[in-house]
Amino acid sequence: MTTTKDAAQDFLAHHRVAVTGVSHAPKGHGSNAVYTFLRDHGYEVFAVNPTVEQVEGDPAYPNLQSVPGGVEAVVIATAPERAQQTMEEAADCGVRTVWMHRSIGGGSVSPEAAAWGRAHGMTVIDGGCPLMFHPEGDRGHRMMCRLFTWTGKVPRSV
């Protein structure tokens, strides 16, 4: 087993990251917060949303396969029912590192999709948020990380 902290550091070492579920109406969407934070911190980040052509002033892509040049890591920030399909797309694209976003509530975590990814050799962080582990993450995210780790919403290991 790998600690979530170590898996998060590995995830954040990738610089071409897709974020699924980025909304054209960003208010209150965790996916948009992750997308803009990574973009603003030097990552080459790609919004994946099949229903729009643009989000946050950037092009959106209908799926992982359509991202030019591919990606190294994926944040799943859609309904958990869509996580399996995204996990399979990521595997087909050669992605080995996936983060299922979760803050308050169930988030995007699908235990079945996480198990599938692990069975196919992927590192799957099934809870929390990249902003909780990024060295430049805000104080609120660091506090949520401690609380959610304590309550089990952020796993201690993956």
Rank of each mutant, 00 (worst) to 15 (best):
9 Q>N: 06
9 Q>Y: 04
13 A>F: 00
15 H>S: 10
15 H>M: 08
16 R>E: 07
18 A>D: 10
19 V>G: 03
20 T>G: 05
21 G>L: 06
22 V>F: 14
22 V>Q: 13
23 S>Y: 10
23 S>C: 03
24 H>S: 14
26 P>Y: 06
27 K>W: 05
29 H>A: 12
31 S>E: 08
32 N>L: 01
32 N>G: 03
32 N>R: 09
33 A>Q: 08
34 V>N: 00
37 F>W: 11
38 L>Y: 06
39 R>C: 14
40 D>Y: 06
40 D>T: 11
41 H>F: 02
43 Y>V: 07
43 Y>D: 09
43 Y>F: 13
44 E>D: 14
44 E>K: 12
44 E>G: 04
45 V>N: 12
45 V>K: 05
48 V>D: 06
49 N>L: 01
51 T>G: 06
53 E>I: 04
53 E>K: 15
54 Q>I: 05
54 Q>A: 14
54 Q>K: 15
55 V>I: 02
56 E>Q: 11
57 G>H: 05
57 G>A: 10
60 A>T: 15
61 Y>K: 05
62 P>L: 10
62 P>D: 07
63 N>G: 11
63 N>E: 04
63 N>I: 00
65 Q>S: 14
66 S>M: 10
67 V>K: 12
69 G>V: 02
69 G>R: 03
70 G>S: 07
70 G>W: 12
72 E>I: 13
75 V>Y: 05
79 A>V: 09
80 P>S: 13
80 P>E: 03
82 R>K: 14
82 R>M: 12
83 A>K: 01
83 A>S: 15
84 Q>R: 10
85 Q>D: 07
85 Q>L: 04
86 T>F: 12
88 E>Y: 09
88 E>I: 04
89 E>H: 11
90 A>C: 06
92 D>E: 14
95 V>D: 12
96 R>L: 07
96 R>Q: 13
96 R>P: 04
96 R>N: 08
98 V>L: 05
99 W>I: 00
100 M>E: 14
101 H>T: 08
101 H>I: 10
101 H>W: 08
102 R>L: 03
102 R>I: 11
106 G>R: 08
106 G>N: 10
108 S>Q: 06
109 V>E: 01
109 V>D: 01
110 S>K: 00
110 S>A: 03
112 E>L: 04
112 E>V: 08
113 A>P: 01
113 A>W: 03
114 A>Y: 08
115 A>Q: 11
115 A>S: 01
115 A>D: 10
116 W>H: 06
116 W>I: 11
116 W>M: 13
117 G>V: 10
117 G>I: 06
119 A>W: 00
119 A>E: 15
120 H>G: 07
124 V>E: 01
124 V>P: 03
124 V>M: 05
126 D>G: 15
126 D>N: 08
126 D>Q: 06
127 G>K: 07
128 G>F: 01
128 G>R: 04
128 G>S: 07
129 C>M: 01
130 P>W: 04
131 L>R: 15
131 L>Q: 13
132 M>R: 09
134 H>E: 07
134 H>D: 12
136 E>P: 01
136 E>I: 03
136 E>K: 15
139 R>I: 02
139 R>E: 15
139 R>Q: 12
